[in-house]
Amino acid sequence: MHRALTLTRRRIVSSIPVLLIVIVGTFLLLEAAPGDAVDAYLLSLGGGDAGLVAELRQSYGLDQSLLKRLTLYVGALLRFDLGWSVTFDRPVLDLIAERLPNTLWLMGAATALAFSLGSFLGIVAGARPGSLTDRALSTGSLALYAVPSFWLGLVLVLVFAVDLRWFPTAGIETIASGKTGLARVADIAWHLVLPVSALGFIYLALFLRMMRTGMTEAWRQDFVLFARAKGLARRRIVLRHVARNALLPLVTMLGLQAAAMLGGSVVVESVFAIPGFGRLAHEAVSGRDAPLLTGIIIVSAMLVIVVNLLVDIAYAALDPRVGSGEAAS
């Protein structure tokens, strides 16, 4: 437990400069962008005269210098104030609090799917490396990996929502249904089946191949050879010795994939009209909404840091060889 605490403290301290770099970087990127939040708004306004444009810039504080806006922002941040979104005309914190849970459900479920199914199939494939099953699974999962997520999503919708009508085409829950408690959870889960599949199947290949490689390697290790020599049943060797050993790197992979999955959710959330984090990020970029985009990036960065921390702690707990130092960097 002490080790976990030390690890946590060290991680938090080292992430402060990292977050600062991210904040400044995001601000600079949007500053370099052609067109600002007012330009983005003018389209939905359908036009206005020069006076209106200047008034809007002033009311959004865009007439102030970059440095001034940046200091104001960081100052507010220290008070845990994420600022005001120009695009939505609402506090950034509210927006994030509203959308984050949807994305966490999506990512969590997709990760669980990719991890469990991926490692299971990986075990099947790695149980007899080089067999036909192995090759079929390895190649099939790779082919799945090569399908763009938006295309996979659209095809899933056409087959399972439009033709078969097993699942809804889009959304996170039934509209204005008034469901609460378990019924609502079930409703959300039902809506998430297709998007989770679209996102999860893509990452399936990574876990599958990693598991398989790990297993292939484990077969050559002494204790497995020893177990084989002892004449243990193959099934038992696979599960007890080989798979168990191969699982460790997958845990590390989990942390590495957190950021990638968050990025992948941008597209999946667009296809399935899920009001989540990824779609919010896309809207922030096209609205040139610096406070919102920075807020999103800070929160997703913290999310990634937390996931990695959890992974490290889990890793440290699972593998006694790892000290309290940097586990998986």
């Binding site: 990292v18 995001t26 962008a33 052609p34 950021a259 970029v285 985009l293």
Partner: peptide, 24 residues
């Protein structure tokens, strides 16, 4: 390495999306 960390914790697709949107 802190810079590397900064780039690593930002989702790569988000970064690409933002960069391409603002640069053309």
């Amino acid at each position: 390495m802190r810079v590397v960390d900064a780039f690593q914790i930002v989702p790569g697709f988000l970064l690409a999306l933002a960069f391409v949107s603002v640069t053309g």
